Amino acid sequence: MTAPGTNHLAAHVRGISKSFGDGGSRLQVLKEIDLEVRRGDITMLVGPSGCGKTTLISIIAGTLVADAGELNVFGHDLRKMSTAAITHFRSKYIGFIFQSFNLIPTLTCAENVSVPLLIQGVSPSKAEKRAKEVLEQVGLADRFKNRPSQLSGGQQQRVAIARALVHEPQLIICDEPTAALDAKNGHVVMELFEHVARGKERAVLIVTHDNRIFHHANRIASMDDGRVVEVHDVDEDHPPPEHLKHVERL
């Protein structure tokens, strides 16, 4: 397991708070969150629906701005960066995998995976070459020309993973990546994440209700009512605590 020194951290969150709305309708969603996401680890965020998990990962990804606190991602203080700088940072360092896959139905697998590179200004030929390389890595070498509607749910998820990895980000953030998958495909997806996290000391941060995958985690952070209430290190000698197995699945 990765040592907890500062230079091994992908994300360092301290006192992060976030509210939505104004006046009497103002709702505080995050309440002085502290969390460390380590390089080389799979960190899972668990807890009941509405406890702030998705808001927290959105702040770490730079798509939401916190009201207060400190946020350091790979040595960059996101709270002090401009919107343009954060957008550039996110395109370089962060890959995001959505629960609903968010694949473009009219594009082939290779074209879907190429999109992040095209946005960065990479030529179409180089983007397609790189997309095919990553699709091969996730076991879809025979699906370059297929469109999403021609794929199973597990295959679509692997295309979404390839798209998140194509620009070689250092932090992969996933929102319920196995919720729509059966046990077999969920296991395949988690093995991919394990390879991703440990291969180049990237970090993987996963929001999940799926207790079938908890044993793939290195750390599990439990949230409730806008706070991180406990963090468990997980390994062969320290399996996920029994009470976490009763986390509500979607």
Rank of each mutant, 00 (worst) to 15 (best):
H8A: 11
L9I: 00
L9A: 10
A10E: 13
A10V: 01
H12W: 14
H12N: 15
H12M: 14
R14G: 11
I16E: 09
S17V: 01
K18Q: 07
S19I: 10
F20R: 00
F20M: 05
G21E: 09
D22Y: 14
G23I: 03
G23F: 12
G24N: 14
S25Y: 12
L27A: 04
Q28V: 12
L30P: 09
L30A: 04
K31Y: 11
K31T: 03
I33W: 08
I33D: 00
D34I: 00
D34E: 15
G40Q: 12
I42R: 00
M44V: 04
M44Q: 07
L45K: 10
L45D: 12
G47H: 10
P48Q: 08
S49W: 08
S49Y: 11
G50V: 03
C51Y: 04
G52E: 00
K53R: 01
T54E: 03
L56F: 11
L56V: 01
I57W: 14
S58H: 02
S58M: 02
I60W: 12
I60H: 12
G62C: 03
L64I: 00
V65M: 02
V65D: 10
A66F: 09
A66T: 02
G69D: 01
G69T: 01
G69H: 06
G69M: 03
N72M: 07
N72Q: 07
N72W: 09
F74K: 03
H76C: 06
D77P: 07
L78W: 08
L78D: 10
R79N: 05
R79D: 01
S82L: 02
S82K: 02
A85Q: 12
I86Q: 13
T87M: 14
H88C: 08
F89T: 08
F89L: 08
S91I: 00
K92F: 09
Y93M: 15
Y93G: 09
